[in-house]
Design a protein around this nucleic acid. Sequence first.
DNA 1: ACTTTGCCTGGGAACGTTCCCACCCGTAGA
DNA 2: TCTACGGGTGGGAACGTTCCCAGGCAAAGT
Lengths: 366, 366
Amino acid sequence: MGTPSTPTVYDVAERAGVSIATVSRVYRNPDSVRATTRDKVLEAARALGYVPSGSARGLASRATGVLGLCFPDYSDPDAETEALAADADDDHAFMLYSDQIIRGMERASRRHGYALLIAASLKGGPESLVAKVAGRVDGFAVMAGTVPTDDLEVISRRLPVVMLAGPRGIDHLDHVEVANADGQRELTRHLIEDHGLRRLAFVSGPPNSPDAEARFHGYAEACRAAGLPVPAEPDVRTVMMTQAEGAQAAEELLARTGTVAGAGTHERPEAMVFANDQMAVGALHTLERSGVRVPQDVAVTGFDGIPLSRLVRPTLTTVRQPMRDMGERAVELLLRRIDATEPGHEEPQSVVLPVTLAYRQSCGCG
Amino acid sequence: MGTPSTPTVYDVAERAGVSIATVSRVYRNPDSVRATTRDKVLEAARALGYVPSGSARGLASRATGVLGLCFPDYSDPDAETEALAADADDDHAFMLYSDQIIRGMERASRRHGYALLIAASLKGGPESLVAKVAGRVDGFAVMAGTVPTDDLEVISRRLPVVMLAGPRGIDHLDHVEVANADGQRELTRHLIEDHGLRRLAFVSGPPNSPDAEARFHGYAEACRAAGLPVPAEPDVRTVMMTQAEGAQAAEELLARTGTVAGAGTHERPEAMVFANDQMAVGALHTLERSGVRVPQDVAVTGFDGIPLSRLVRPTLTTVRQPMRDMGERAVELLLRRIDATEPGHEEPQSVVLPVTLAYRQSCGCG
DNA sequence: ACTTTGCCTGGGAACGTTCCCACCCGTAGA
DNA sequence: TCTACGGGTGGGAACGTTCCCAGGCAAAGT
């Protein structure tokens, strides 16, 4: 009694001389309360320092008004390396994917009256992360590889989940991705047809990276379309797709140059096509050190369109991904499910966002 | 009852043949339950697709495990203008302040086992924003000018609130800010002493911007220290501190050059000191168009250290703010309050983060 | 064989809202 | 004057957890 640590509807009701139902109404549906009563309540609330409990409300109304986003741990291995092309302590000026997606989701959420709960996966306890978010939102988006599939399977039975940029993994989930194959195909076509390059090499990531795989397929398709030999496998595969690995991959490709046992002469590729910008940037450094000129001696391309791609010299030809749109679309998909008043489970929807090409110096354009 | 839309502890308990208390224990304190029992429960939960309700938990335990952040609406007037120095559709590659603070807070929150709830203030309903967040978190940070002071006053009586980068407004709040005056003073000293400039002009924002005011004070102090006339007011004031206004301010300063009625000859300033980077960048454009060379004819400096400041030509000398640290410190302050087991209200704490100077081309360095 | 000591587990009261229902009462229609 | 109607309000049952308190029971101590 008296003044408990945090005032509740009861306290406000008592002070205003009304029932708790009326207090609730004042906040939920102001128009249904007579003006004078409303003012009394508001005044009491102000005096008491009353703030409605989101938890209690969420419990009673079975809706939180919050959307969630789970993304991978920020600190990627390149976090520091990235800085080498810029002021040392300025690297945090660049946005990561997650930042852009956050921005997109935040915008869209806000527009629809939702708040956004974000949580990066902690290597430690996977369960803790999801559990924390899942129980607290009306629906959420997951960046690929953030949440164990098993957990996702369970959770997605209870609330809307949309998968971002990944393999759809669980087949009944909505998901949003970018046109990886299309982008890579077009970029490759550009190298072949517009620049007349013939000997290409593709550097990919691990086989379990759906993005990298899709890009490789686009690359292979372009080769087939141009009548070039169609590779069954990427020329090089890396594990983490980092700058360091990209540098190493470039080295390896250069090393293969020359005579190769049984295969006759192996000429240096005219273009190194990387599955992401990070690797391409790493390669750029290696090539420069080796005295190989880009793009005169060899063209280099990336994928993603990270800010660094434009700062590096030569500027990197790449494929830009609309990460922000991705966030926005994710929200739309979630809301569609949430608003669907629980009736027929609609077909899982899959959105593929178009990418845009950035032709810059490293391929001979710009 | 059969299979209600969403399973609860009761359903799990029933299926596992235990009490709801045990189910709860399995999630909250696994070690307190015998292994075999635990497995039964987990198995039942999995089968049912059970996800603990965050709302219910929050209600019962009076803690949400979530920290909040309210920040101003993203879409600033310069959003598009910014792009003019870069690829047209690439402007979203740059981080805004809010992004960096989000990143900082997210990192720190995660480290301490909290999730982050973010919400930008919607011009429309101010109440709705805060109410939504406030009731749902254990404490939150507010960027200056995002939440009406009255609301803040009420809310801060109920849970920890820390003010970011603003006037502390309400005096019992913790707050975090950067050393605006120090940075501007040092930068100004640099112009005067290291470059030997004498005629400086300061372009500030509106009087109600505490940041801009603090910077002006630092500027004035440096003038006094150098024995130069101490300005009582900035030479120019803008309203929104945008690029456009910066450009206009530069024009105005140039226009003042020449004979001024009654004031004798008014020489062109040797340095234009802007209270933020946005305005400085705008000025750079104007000066270039006017054929005024930077830094030969006039030095230009900004404040903030936005990514654009390094991309623009000449590169902009500025003061970098550690926005990310700001987010981290904010979290620390919040946790301190939260963990304080409600006893003596500690003194409100005020953290001032040091800034770092970036001497670049626009002042004659770099 | 009889306590004592703990480990596990079950009971049940909060936690602070929302929302359906019922109730009161003044006004308009008959 | 009586009935219908409807805006405004109060009562009280959920909502799904957590957590304190007991109680049961087996292993260990006397």
